[in-house]
Amino acid sequence: MNAPDRYERFVVPEGTKKVSYERDTKIINAATFTIEREDHTIGNILRMQLHGDENVLFAGYKLPHPLQYKILVRIHTTSQSSPMQAYNQAINDLDKELDHLKCAFEVEVEKHSRDF
């Protein structure tokens, strides 16, 4: 009866930003990104990609509550970088990795369909 609509799980409500950014008030080069309507799928790949960046001192994500459809990604970097730069870099790298993966997979499918 009073169950929330199922689409609330993946549709960003009007007037809400998909990604918001908040600097840490005490630590320089640390910030928290709040990503609306995302979960472990995005959180975990971002976190692992950030761990590969040597200017990132800390990167972690959490899903605060299973019924709050958002994740928090916290990044702390060295002075050589900034959380925003590291975040953008991680997304760009993942995007390129997926491009590469897509091509590689298409080539393999092509190879396989020719064999039969």
Binding site: Q49, D53, N55, D93, K96, E97, F105, S113
Partner: peptide, 18 residues
Amino acid sequence: MEGISYQRFPKVKIRELK
């Protein structure tokens, strides 16, 4: 500001496809 890229190049090999 452009950082260094940490992109990976995954490999795929299909074993069976139906």
